[in-house]
Design a binder for these strands. Structure first.
Lengths: 263, 263
DNA sequence: GAGTGGTCTAGACCACGCG
DNA sequence: GCGTGGTCTAGACCACTCA
C-alpha cells in the first residue's frame, strides 16, 4: 500500500553520494516478504508440520496485498520449505510427511513397486563423538578438531544389506545424539533430526562415483570385494545454506539403482 | 471475460445424466491455455530459439486476461519449455543456449572450474541402422524389429576418454542421421537434433549403477577391467512424454564425478 | 519512446475441508 | 457456513531492451 518498493525492508539502501560501483540491487516486495517468512521459519516461529498464518493475516501483518504474500509463499513452496493444502492452510514442510518421506533417497529396487513398503531396517555399527578431520571440518564449515558425531550404519531392504554409510554431524548442534536414538526412531532419520534437534534439512548435493569396496565394507554389504558399488557423498544443508550433515555412503546396485529425473 | 471457467476449451464436459463415477476433473483456465500453447509448441508453430507472441497478444488471442496467460507461461518456463527474457520477450527453449548447454550431462571434473571450457571431443565408433531388440523397442515405445539407429561414441575431456555410450534413436524420426553429422556438429548433440530433425528433448530419466567394464569397453576408456565405472541408462522424452532416445553410457569416475542437487 | 516482461494492487468468485 | 487456498480480472506502474 503506502510502502514503496523501496528497500525499507531489506536495508539495501542505494548510496546517494559516491560512485555506485554496483547495481542498485532492486529487490521486489515479494522477495522481501519471502525473506521475512524465511526468517520466521529459521527462528522457529512456526515448527515443522504446523500451519503458518493465513495469506490474509500475513498480508495484514506485512501491509501488502494478498497477491504479494501469495507469490512469496509460492516460491517457498516450490523450494519445499512450505506445503500448501487447499482449504486447510499453509504448513511448514517436514520430512515426516507420508508423501515426501525419504525425499533425498534416490535408490530404488530394480523390480517392483515404487519405494516398496519395507521402510529400511537400520543397524547402527557405531556412534561416537570425535574431533573433525580436515576434510570433514571443511565440508561442515567447522574448524579442524571441532567436535563432531560420527554414525556408521547399514540399511537393509527386505533383509538384504544395501547401504553402508558414515554420517558426520556438528557435535554442538547434535549434542547427546545416541546410538539408541539413531536405531529406534520411527520414519526417516531427517524427521528425527527435526523433532529431537530442531534441525530441518532443506536441500543437499551429492557426488557419485563407482568404486570397489574394501574387505570390511564388502563384508557389511554381504558382497565380494570385486562387486562395484556406488559411492555417494552427500552434503545436506539447513536454512541459510548452512551445511549440517556429511554422508558418505556405499550403495549396492546389483539389486537396486539410483534413479534421477532430469528436467 | 465472457468465457466461463467451463471446459469450453478442453472438452471435459461434466456428464449431466448418469452416475458421475469420476470427479468432474475441474481444470483451471490457465491450464487450458497452457495446453494450447503446448500444442503450438509441439506442432512447430514457433521454432526453438524463436520468440512466441507477447503476453498481451496471447491474451487477446485466447480471450483471457494477461495474468492468466502469464501463469500458463510461468509453468512452461518452470518446465524449461520456454525462456523469459525481460524487455525482449518469451522464447522457445533450446539446447543450443549458452546458459543451459549440456543440461542433462551431470558429469563434472573433480577439480577445477565448473564445466571446464573443453566442450568434449567426440569420437564416433559406429553409426548404423538396425532392427530394435525387445528391450530397446520397449523403452522407445516401438515394436520389436522396428528400425532404429544406433550410435556408439566416446567423449573425451582434455584429451582423456571419459564417456563411452550407445545411443538408440527411432529410425523413422531420425532417417538419414549419419556418422558425419554426429561427429561434426557444433555444440550439444541435442541442439543438432533440434536443428536437423526438429526433435526437442524436454526431460529425461536416468538409472545409475556401478559396474565393471568388459575388455573392449575398458580399452575404449583407457582403463583396466578392474576399474569400476558408472553405468548410466538414460531415457529422454520429447513433448507429450514421448520417449525419443535411449542411451547407455559408461562414465569414468576416477577423474570426474556425477553431480546431483537434491531439493 | 515504444514494447516486453515483472510487480503490485483490489476485488470477485470458485473449490475444498471441516465443523 | 465459514475460513483457507486457488483462480481470474483489470488496471497501474516499474525495469529492461532496443532502435
Amino acid at each position: 500500500m503506502s510502502s514503496l518498493p523501496s528497500p525499507a525492508l531489506d536495508g539495501a539502501a542505494p548510496a546517494g553520494g559516491s560512485a555506485p560501483s554496483q547495481a542498485p540491487a532492486f529487490s521486489p516486495l515479494y522477495q522481501q516478504i519471502k525473506g521475512l517468512i524465511l526468517h520466521s521459519l529459521q527462528h522457529g516461529e512456526w515448527k515443522p508440520g504446523e500451519a503458518i498464518p493465513s495469506e490474509m493475516e500475513l498480508a495484514a501483518r506485512f501491509r501488502v496485498s494478498q497477491g504479494t504474500v501469495r507469490k512469496a509463499i509460492d516460491e517457498l513452496a516450490a523450494e519445499n520449505l512450505l506445503t500448501r493444502r487447499q482449504g486447510k492452510g499453509t504448513f511448514v514442510a517436514t520430512h515426516a510427511e507420508r508423501q515426501v518421506q525419504y525425499r533425498f533417497l534416490k535408490l530404488l529396487p530394480d523390480s517392483g513397486d515404487a519405494r516398496g513398503e519395507a521402510p529400511a531396517q537400520r543397524t547402527i555399527l557405531e556412534c561416537r563423538r570425535l574431533r573433525a578431520a580436515a576434510d570433514v571440518a571443511r565440508a561442515l564449515a567447522l574448524r579442524t578438531g571441532d567436535a563432531v558425531i560420527q554414525v556408521r550404519r547399514v540399511l537393509s531392504f527386505a533383509g538384504v544389506p544395501t547401504i553402508l554409510e558414515d554420517i558426520w554431524l556438528p557435535g554442538h548442534t547434535f549434542k547427546g545424539l545416541s546410538a539408541e536414538q539413531m536405531a529406534s526412531h520411527q520414519g526417516p532419520t531427517y524427521a528425527m533430526f527435526e523433532l529431537d534437534f530442531g534441525v530441518r534439512m532443506v536441500r543437499a548435493e551429492e557426488k557419485l562415483r563407482a568404486v570397489l569396496p574394501d574387505e570390511q565394507q564388502a563384508q557389511w554389504l554381504a558382497i565380494s570385494t570385486s562387486t562395484p558399488v556406488l559411492s555417494v557423498e552427500r552434503l545436506a544443508y539447513t536454512y541459510n545454506d548452512a551445511p549440517m550433515e556429511l554422508r558418505r555412503g556405499l550403495y549396492r546396485t546389483d539389486t537396486h539403482h539410483y534413479h534421477n529425473a532430469l528436467s
